[in-house]
Every structure is written in structure tokens, then in C-alpha cells.
Amino acid sequence: MGFKLLSKLLVYLTASIMAIASPLAFSVDSSGEYPTVSEIPVGEVRLYQIADGVWSHIATQSFDGAVYPSNGLIVRDGDELLLIDTAWGAKNTAALLAEIEKQIGLPVTRAVSTHFHDDRVGGVDVLRAAGVATYASPSTRRLAEVEGNEIPTHSLEGLSSSGDAVRFGPVELFYPGAAHSTDNLIVYVPSASVLYGGCAIYELSRTSAGNVADADLAEWPTSIERIQQHYPEAQFVIPGHGLPGGLDLLKHTTNVVKAHTNRSVVE
């Protein structure tokens, strides 16, 4: 069995187990497998329904001669939608809004960016022009300005110390501490036991640490421990890039980060 097929099978099995364990909360999309990078042309966006009122959005972007996937989250909030992270750029984010209108038909009224990198804030200006209120932590807003990236308009308070959590509509926002970046936030959907790890969490097929220019490698494993301790009931975990899975993604990420750190020390 090929690795790609095995990865998709694991996603399907995880979703099936969740649907059985929580039949009222989960209505997993039966329309197909989780979209992969090879299936999404740059400039297009796919939506994948995880649970009743919960979707991931998947886009792709060219970077350094390669094409990478990027995940975000959409959560229903009454007759409105909360968006977590842009679709990595203005063109993708405009396509995301169009796809949401086509498939869901509810307005996106608020959006949260989970850290300051372009795959999370690139497209904020498109959201703002569409009347979406954009939010991020003060740290993310400051770092985005320093980096020359787009800056969300509103500040999220109460997320300055490791372990801080605040309720934001249908989700809980959690600051686990520094990891992929010093400002990275985690998003949890309690009604569906869905954990969105953003770039602080890796997919299972990833074996290298990737972009760690703004990471705190020493603190990252401790931050992941905080996530595990705060959300032990999480059933569906979405990484910032690639295929979702279960809580095993947290341990896998820790292993990859520690291996990278150990290699760096040896070198």
C-alpha cells in the first residue's frame, strides 16, 4: 500500500471513529477524501466538511520552486461564519470567499490569524475590503508590521502568557507558548472536538522541520505538551499544512522538532 493511500485511509478511519463516538456532533463529509496538494491548482481553494458547521479550507501556493498546501478553518456561528487564517495570499483568499459563498452561503463576518507569517495573514486586506472584521493577538499584529505583512485590524486580548485561553464565538483560542513562531495560536472547536494546530503542528508525513527561522526550538516541545494537557479530548487535529489526523500529530511534531534540534547540535 502506497504512503499517500495509507495517509488518506488514516484520515478516513479517524473521521469514521469520530462519527461513531459522537453521532450528534459529527456529520463528516462523505463526498470524498481530504484534498491534497496535487489536486488543488494554485489560485483555487477546496472546502472539506469535518463536522456539522465545521470545515477546513485548503489552498496551495508556490514557494521556492515548489507547491505547498495550506489549511485553515471555518466555523459556523449562528447565521454567520468565523474564518481562521487566510488562504495564503490575496488571490487565494478572494477564491476562498467565493467558494464559501458557493458552498455554504453564509457571510464571513470575523477572521482570526493564528500567527504573523504570510500563509496566515496574506489576504487580510481582501477580507477587510469584503467587510470582514480581522483579528490577531497584539504580538501577531506587531510582528506582521515588522515583517511588512498585512496586519489584522483588531487585537485579541488575554493571550499574552503561555497557557492563556479565551473564548471567541464558537471557538476557544489558546496560546501554548512559542513553537513554530513566538505568537502562534491554537484554535479548538469544543462542539466538535476539532483542534486546529496551525503551523505549530505537523502532518504525519512530514519528517523535516522546514521553516524554523522564527521558531523557538527549545520551547516548542513544552508548548505541545500544554496543548495535549489542555485538549486531551480532541479527536480531529488539523495541521497548518497537509493531512489531518488525531492527537498523534502532536507527538510526531515533537519528535521531528527534537530530531532537528539534535542534528543542529551535532553539526
Score class of each variant (00 low, 15 high):
residue 71 N to C: 03
residue 67 V to C: 09
residue 102 K to M: 14
residue 239 P to N: 01
residue 179 A to S: 12
residue 177 G to D: 03
residue 89 G to E: 02
residue 121 V to D: 01
residue 15 A to M: 06
residue 219 E to G: 10
residue 244 P to M: 14
residue 265 V to R: 08
residue 22 S to K: 05
residue 177 G to F: 00
residue 25 A to C: 06
residue 22 S to I: 15
residue 128 R to P: 03
residue 105 G to F: 15
residue 28 V to L: 07
residue 28 V to N: 15
residue 212 V to W: 05
residue 47 L to W: 02
residue 248 D to G: 09
residue 2 G to N: 15
residue 226 R to C: 03
residue 67 V to T: 07
residue 62 S to N: 11
residue 135 Y to D: 01
residue 4 K to L: 04
residue 125 D to R: 10
residue 224 I to Q: 01
residue 19 A to M: 08
residue 224 I to C: 03
residue 72 G to K: 01
residue 91 K to T: 14
residue 235 Q to L: 10
residue 148 G to F: 12
residue 139 S to K: 06
residue 108 V to P: 14
residue 104 I to K: 00
residue 76 R to K: 10
residue 248 D to A: 07
residue 176 P to C: 01
residue 85 D to R: 00
residue 102 K to C: 11
residue 238 I to N: 00
residue 62 S to I: 08
residue 8 K to V: 06
residue 72 G to N: 01
residue 92 N to Q: 14
residue 4 K to Q: 04
residue 24 L to D: 07
residue 233 E to I: 13
residue 226 R to H: 06
residue 45 V to I: 05
residue 244 P to F: 14
residue 47 L to Y: 00
residue 173 L to C: 02
residue 58 I to P: 02
residue 201 I to W: 02
residue 201 I to D: 03
residue 175 Y to G: 02
residue 113 S to H: 15
residue 172 E to K: 14
residue 54 V to Q: 02
residue 258 K to N: 07
residue 163 G to N: 14
residue 36 T to G: 07
residue 107 P to R: 15
residue 128 R to A: 12
residue 108 V to R: 02
residue 83 L to F: 03
residue 235 Q to D: 06
residue 71 N to M: 04
residue 190 P to C: 03
residue 36 T to H: 14
residue 4 K to D: 05
residue 254 T to I: 05
residue 32 G to N: 05
residue 119 D to F: 00
residue 123 G to Q: 02
residue 227 I to N: 02
residue 32 G to Y: 08
residue 210 G to E: 13
residue 188 Y to A: 12
residue 232 P to F: 15
residue 125 D to T: 07
residue 189 V to N: 03
residue 76 R to Y: 08
residue 94 A to V: 11
residue 118 D to S: 12
residue 84 I to S: 01
residue 249 L to P: 00
residue 162 S to F: 12
residue 147 E to K: 10
residue 173 L to E: 02
residue 115 H to R: 00
residue 225 E to L: 10
residue 254 T to H: 06
residue 136 A to G: 10
residue 53 G to C: 04
residue 18 M to T: 04
residue 9 L to F: 10
residue 195 L to V: 08
residue 224 I to E: 02
residue 204 L to C: 04
residue 37 V to C: 09
residue 193 S to H: 15
residue 57 H to A: 03
residue 214 D to A: 12
residue 154 H to M: 11
residue 107 P to L: 11
residue 215 A to I: 14
residue 107 P to A: 15
residue 98 A to R: 10
residue 202 Y to I: 05
residue 53 G to F: 11
residue 73 L to W: 01
residue 47 L to I: 05
residue 21 A to G: 09
residue 266 V to A: 11
residue 92 N to S: 14
residue 262 N to P: 13
residue 132 V to G: 01
residue 174 F to K: 01
residue 212 V to D: 08
residue 64 D to A: 07
residue 172 E to Y: 07
residue 164 D to M: 12
residue 81 L to Y: 03
residue 48 Y to V: 09
residue 97 L to N: 03
residue 198 G to K: 00
residue 82 L to Y: 10
residue 71 N to I: 02
residue 27 S to D: 08
residue 150 E to D: 14
residue 61 Q to F: 05
residue 105 G to N: 06
residue 6 L to P: 06
residue 252 H to M: 07
residue 120 R to S: 10
residue 59 A to S: 07
residue 92 N to R: 13
residue 249 L to G: 00
residue 36 T to E: 13
residue 170 P to C: 03
residue 267 E to K: 09
residue 266 V to F: 13
residue 209 A to E: 09
residue 165 A to I: 09
residue 133 A to I: 08
residue 180 H to L: 01
residue 51 A to V: 07
residue 71 N to S: 06
residue 106 L to S: 09
residue 52 D to K: 13
residue 198 G to M: 04
residue 19 A to H: 02
residue 230 H to C: 11
residue 194 V to N: 00
residue 101 E to G: 14
residue 215 A to M: 10
residue 59 A to C: 06
residue 37 V to Y: 12
residue 72 G to L: 00
residue 132 V to W: 02
residue 101 E to F: 13
residue 42 V to A: 10
residue 25 A to E: 05
residue 155 S to N: 13
residue 26 F to L: 08
residue 233 E to M: 10
residue 110 R to C: 04
residue 101 E to N: 13
residue 95 A to S: 09
residue 225 E to P: 02
residue 125 D to H: 08
residue 256 V to M: 15
residue 140 T to Q: 02
residue 20 I to N: 11
residue 152 P to E: 03
residue 148 G to D: 11
residue 2 G to V: 09
residue 36 T to R: 07
residue 120 R to Q: 04
residue 230 H to R: 08
residue 235 Q to I: 15
residue 242 G to A: 02
residue 52 D to L: 06
residue 90 A to N: 13
residue 52 D to R: 06
residue 145 E to G: 11
residue 78 G to H: 08
residue 213 A to L: 10
residue 171 V to A: 10
residue 6 L to D: 14
residue 67 V to R: 08
residue 253 T to E: 00
residue 81 L to G: 04
residue 38 S to C: 11
residue 188 Y to F: 11
residue 190 P to F: 11
residue 144 A to N: 06
residue 201 I to R: 02
residue 126 V to Y: 15
residue 172 E to G: 04
residue 92 N to H: 05
residue 110 R to Q: 10
residue 49 Q to H: 04
residue 53 G to N: 05
residue 249 L to F: 02
residue 114 T to N: 00
residue 206 R to I: 14
residue 108 V to S: 06
residue 13 L to Y: 15
residue 182 T to C: 04
residue 88 W to A: 01
residue 158 G to F: 15
residue 191 S to A: 08
residue 61 Q to W: 09
residue 60 T to C: 10
residue 219 E to F: 15
residue 256 V to N: 15
residue 154 H to E: 14
residue 196 Y to P: 01
residue 103 Q to H: 13
residue 27 S to W: 07
residue 143 L to S: 13
residue 84 I to H: 00
residue 177 G to T: 00
residue 12 Y to E: 07
residue 238 I to D: 00
residue 80 E to Q: 14
residue 145 E to L: 09
residue 166 V to S: 07
residue 238 I to T: 03
residue 93 T to I: 01
residue 35 P to H: 06
residue 265 V to Y: 06
residue 17 I to N: 03
residue 251 K to I: 05
residue 2 G to E: 13
residue 164 D to H: 10
residue 173 L to G: 01
residue 179 A to Q: 00
residue 123 G to P: 02
residue 194 V to M: 09
residue 198 G to Y: 01
residue 89 G to R: 09
residue 156 L to K: 03
residue 226 R to Q: 04
residue 4 K to N: 10
residue 122 G to H: 06
residue 246 G to Q: 05
residue 142 R to C: 10
residue 11 V to D: 04
residue 264 S to F: 06
residue 185 L to T: 15
residue 70 S to L: 02
residue 264 S to M: 12
residue 48 Y to H: 11
residue 184 N to A: 02
residue 80 E to C: 15
residue 172 E to F: 10
residue 240 G to P: 01
residue 125 D to Q: 08
residue 213 A to D: 14
residue 89 G to I: 03
residue 79 D to V: 13
residue 244 P to W: 13
residue 14 T to H: 06
residue 70 S to C: 04
residue 141 R to F: 08
residue 204 L to W: 11
residue 213 A to P: 14
residue 54 V to D: 01
residue 209 A to V: 10
residue 182 T to S: 11
residue 110 R to V: 13
residue 65 G to F: 08
residue 17 I to T: 04
residue 3 F to L: 05
residue 101 E to I: 15
residue 167 R to V: 05
residue 157 E to R: 15
residue 165 A to F: 10
residue 251 K to S: 05
residue 88 W to Q: 00
residue 155 S to L: 05
residue 1 M to H: 03
residue 75 V to M: 07
residue 100 I to G: 01
residue 21 A to H: 04
residue 63 F to V: 05
residue 80 E to S: 14
residue 18 M to Y: 09
residue 261 T to D: 06
residue 239 P to D: 02
residue 119 D to N: 02
residue 253 T to D: 00
residue 214 D to T: 08
residue 100 I to C: 03
residue 74 I to P: 01
residue 176 P to D: 01
residue 62 S to T: 08
residue 48 Y to I: 08
residue 258 K to H: 06
residue 251 K to T: 05
residue 110 R to W: 15
residue 47 L to C: 03
residue 115 H to G: 00
residue 157 E to T: 13
residue 72 G to C: 01
residue 71 N to D: 03
residue 32 G to I: 04
residue 62 S to A: 07
residue 143 L to V: 10
residue 16 S to A: 04
residue 129 A to W: 11
residue 38 S to E: 10
residue 165 A to L: 11
residue 47 L to Q: 03
residue 241 H to F: 00
residue 261 T to W: 10
residue 23 P to S: 07
residue 127 L to E: 01
residue 118 D to G: 09
residue 34 Y to A: 10
residue 157 E to H: 14
residue 252 H to Q: 15
residue 165 A to S: 14
residue 183 D to T: 00
residue 125 D to I: 10
residue 42 V to H: 09
residue 8 K to L: 09
residue 239 P to W: 01
residue 110 R to E: 14
residue 13 L to P: 09
residue 152 P to F: 04
residue 208 S to A: 13
residue 111 A to V: 07
residue 134 T to K: 01
residue 168 F to N: 02
residue 147 E to C: 13
residue 163 G to V: 13
residue 95 A to G: 11
residue 251 K to Y: 15
residue 98 A to I: 04
residue 84 I to G: 01
residue 54 V to Y: 00
residue 158 G to N: 14
residue 261 T to L: 08
residue 182 T to R: 05
residue 220 W to M: 04
residue 191 S to C: 02
residue 15 A to F: 04
residue 11 V to L: 06
residue 243 L to V: 12
residue 22 S to N: 04
residue 215 A to V: 12
residue 211 N to R: 11
residue 42 V to R: 08
residue 217 L to Q: 08
residue 111 A to S: 10
residue 225 E to C: 06
residue 213 A to Y: 12
residue 47 L to P: 03
residue 267 E to C: 03
residue 172 E to R: 15
residue 187 V to Y: 01
residue 238 I to V: 09
residue 166 V to M: 08
residue 48 Y to A: 06
residue 115 H to S: 00
residue 73 L to E: 01
residue 251 K to G: 14
residue 81 L to W: 01
residue 21 A to Q: 10
residue 194 V to W: 01
residue 38 S to N: 09
residue 59 A to V: 09
residue 200 A to S: 08
residue 131 G to D: 10
residue 202 Y to E: 11
residue 235 Q to S: 05
residue 180 H to S: 00
